[in-house]
Simulated scan of single mutants.
Amino acid sequence: MLLTPDLVALTLRDVHDDGPEPSWTPLSQVELDDLVDRLDQEAGGDPIWVFAYGSLIWNPEFEATARERATAYGWHRSFSLKIERWRATSEQPGLMMALERGGRCDGVMLRLPNEHRRKNLGALVAREIRYREVAGMVRWIQVQTPKGPRRALTFWASTRRSGLTQPLPAETTATLIASACGQGGSCAQYLHNTIVDLEAEGIRDRNLWHLQELVAERIKAQQRS
């Protein structure tokens, strides 16, 4: 991989917390509780499986009681959600991954513990969905596993109609990822960690591998300049 830990380290810097995403409205506790209650009710008596395709693979909010490979057909990973906080700033916006329509996405299924299910689900949703404008980006999707089809909860699953994501040319995407850093780390670090953990699961996303080459080139070019 061309995006080495040494190159990733060059993108990291101390950034203070500038508060919530500009123009986004933080969810109130009541709105968060309502969202969690709805998801819990929609799951019914069935176990809740979460489809992880990015950071949840290497940094889940809960101790999964089961883990298995899965494929979401009709979706693909895309660095298409523009951010100005966490791994970016308003001065240097970045991108985080979302699921976009089309293609396939190989990922990992994580089963939420049945014990204290509502509490674990609440912590997970609070971490992933902090703003009113993106509350619709948590949804149930059908995935295929070695044991057959399953219904899974996933986050940041978008359609272009939402207006929240915008797929960009690979070169533009790479430039944003190579430059952005916030109090939560850099976008290049996020990309690197995702690729490494996907590889550990036996998953190689060729789009991410192409992207990391472009990001590595951008970081080197920035250092030369």
Score class of each variant (00 low, 15 high):
Y131H: 13
T165W: 00
R118L: 14
A157F: 00
I129Y: 06
E115G: 02
Y131F: 13
N120F: 05
P113V: 01
T175C: 09
N114C: 13
G148R: 08
Q166D: 07
Q142K: 13
G163L: 07
T159I: 04
T173A: 13
A174K: 02
R151L: 04
A174Q: 13
L164E: 08
R132F: 13
N114W: 11
A170P: 09
T173N: 04
A157T: 00
G148I: 09
E128Q: 11
L124Q: 13
N114H: 07
N120D: 05
A135G: 03
R139S: 12
A170S: 13
L121G: 01
A170Q: 12
E133M: 03
V125Y: 01
S158R: 05
R127H: 10
Y131P: 06
P149D: 02
N114A: 13
R127S: 02
P113R: 09
W140P: 01
Q144Y: 11
V134I: 10
R127E: 06
E115P: 08
N114F: 11
N114P: 11
E115L: 03
P146R: 08
T165E: 05
S158D: 00
G148N: 15
A152Y: 03
P149F: 15
N120M: 03
P149M: 03
G148Q: 11
Q142W: 11
M137G: 03
E133T: 10
P113T: 07
Q166N: 14
V125I: 02
A152H: 03
R118C: 04
W156P: 07
N120G: 11
E115C: 14
K147C: 09
P167D: 06
I129C: 04
R150H: 10
R118A: 07
Q144F: 07
W156F: 10
E133I: 01
V143H: 06
R151H: 15
G148D: 12
A170Y: 08
L124R: 13
R130T: 04
R127I: 14
R150V: 01
A135I: 15
